Amino acid sequence: MRPLDGITVVEFSRVLAGPFATQILADLGADVIKIERPGGGDESRSFEPRLPGGESAYFFAFNRGKRSVTLNLRTTRGQEIARGLAAGADVLVENFMPGTMDKYGLGYEALATLNPGLVYISSTGFGQSGPYADRKGYDTVFQALSGIMSLTGHPDTPPAKVGIPVSDMTSGLWIVISALTGLLERKNSGRGGHVDLAMMDVQASLLALAAARIFALDEDPGRTGTAHLGRVPSSAFECADGGWLHISASDQHWKPLCEVLGLGELAADPALDANEGRIAQRERVTAALAAAVARRPRDELAVALRAVDVPAGEVKTAREALADPHTIARGMVGHFDHPTEGRFSALRTPLRLDETEYPEPGVPPLLGADTEEVLAERLGLDHDELARLREEGTI
C-alpha cells in the first residue's frame, strides 16, 4: 500500500509545475488521469531533448505513472465527459488562465455542485485576482519579477537565473502541499475547496531571508555569488587542482577549520571567534581562506575538513551528483521500461515513509493511451460510443 492509494486526481495542466506535482501524487499512489488535447497533447511532448523514438525526455521527467486521456474541451461532449471525470475525482489540478475553466463549464463552482468533496487547485502565474491576474508567465519571468534573479550571480556580473526551473518546481511542491492539505480538511469537514495558488506568490514566499534584511535593516540584498550575507565563512573556494570546494562554518567549526588550513594567526585572533566578528572582517578572512584552500587539492581537503566535522561540499556537476555513491545508495535513480523508447533512467520521489519500498518510477503514458480504458471504467462508455467520440474528434 502507498499513502494515496484510492485517491483519484484529474489533471488539466501541462508543461511543468502542475505535471511535476501530479507526478509526485502518482508516485505516492494516486490514480492520476491526465487530460490532453487530441493530436498534440501536453506541449512538453515536443520539447527537447528528444529520444530516438521521438518521445521527449522533458515530458518523461514530469509525467511518470499517469494515465493519458485525450479530450477536446472545446466541444460540448468533451466538456460533459470532463465533468463526469471530475465528479468522481478527489483532486483536480488546472493551470489555465483565470476564467478559462469557467468558460468550459469546469470551474470550481460548477464542479463543486456535482462533487462537494472535490479539492480543486488552480495553479496560475499570478493568481485569480490582482492587477497581474491576466498576465502570462514562464519560470524565468517569475524569477525576474520576484527578485530571485537579482539575487543570483556574482556582484560583478549581470543577474542570472537559477540553474534549475526553481519557480516551476517550487510551485509544483506547493500544489502537492495544497492537495494534501485539502484532502485532510475534507476528512475533517466533509467538503473540498478551491485553492488559488499563484506562482508569483510562491516565489515571494521564498524571499524570507532577503525580506528579513529589508524588514530589519532596510537593506535590499544584492548578488553575493556563493557567499552568505549572514555567515563567514560560507563560500566556494578554488582548489589547487582547479576543483571548487564549498565551506560553510559556524563558530564551533572555526578553529578546526583554521587548524586544517594552517591559519594559526586567524585562529589566535579573539575578534574572529564569533561569526559577528568574522562578518566585520569578511575581506580579510575570505582572502586568507582563499589563499590557503588554493594550495590544497579539492578531494584531499574535503576529506580533511570532514574529519574534524567542518561542513564542506565539493562543487559537482549534475552528472557527478547523480553518480555519487550516496545518491546511488539512497536509490534516487531508478528506471522504467517505455513501450517505444525502452529502458530509461528516472529520478525517484525522495519521500521515504517507514522504510516503505516504493516501486520503480512509473511509465510516462503515450498520448491518449488510456482514453478508452478510463472512459469505460469511470463513465461506463461502451465500444460503440467510444468509436463515435473518436470519429467526431471529441477524443
Rank of each mutant, 00 (worst) to 15 (best):
A87V: 08
A87L: 06
M101C: 04
G127W: 04
L73I: 09
P116L: 10
F60T: 03
Y104P: 02
L111H: 07
G153N: 06
T113V: 15
M101A: 12
T70V: 14
F62T: 14
T152W: 08
D102V: 11
P165N: 09
L106M: 11
I81F: 01
Y132P: 00
S146I: 02
F62C: 13
E94L: 09
F60D: 12
P131I: 11
L92E: 07
A133W: 13
G65Y: 05
G153F: 06
A110N: 01
A86S: 14
L73H: 04
M97D: 00
P159N: 07
G153L: 09
F59W: 05
N63D: 03
T170E: 00
Y108K: 04
E80P: 04
R77V: 13
G117A: 12
D102L: 09
L85M: 10
N72I: 00
P116C: 10
D134Q: 15
E109I: 01
G105V: 04
Y132S: 14
A112I: 01
G107S: 10
S167Q: 12
G137A: 15
P158Q: 05
A160L: 15
G147I: 10
V93D: 08
T124D: 06
K66T: 03
I121S: 05
G99N: 11
T140G: 01
V119W: 07
I81Y: 01
M169A: 08
D139K: 11
T152L: 06
G84M: 07
R74W: 00
V141W: 01
D90Y: 06
A89N: 05
T170N: 12
P165L: 08
V69H: 02
T100C: 01
P116N: 09
V93N: 09
V69M: 05
T100S: 13
V162W: 13
R135F: 15
V162R: 10
T170Q: 10
A89C: 10
A160N: 13
A61K: 02
G163Y: 03
A133C: 14
T75D: 01
A133R: 15
K136P: 06
T170W: 04
N115K: 06
G125V: 11
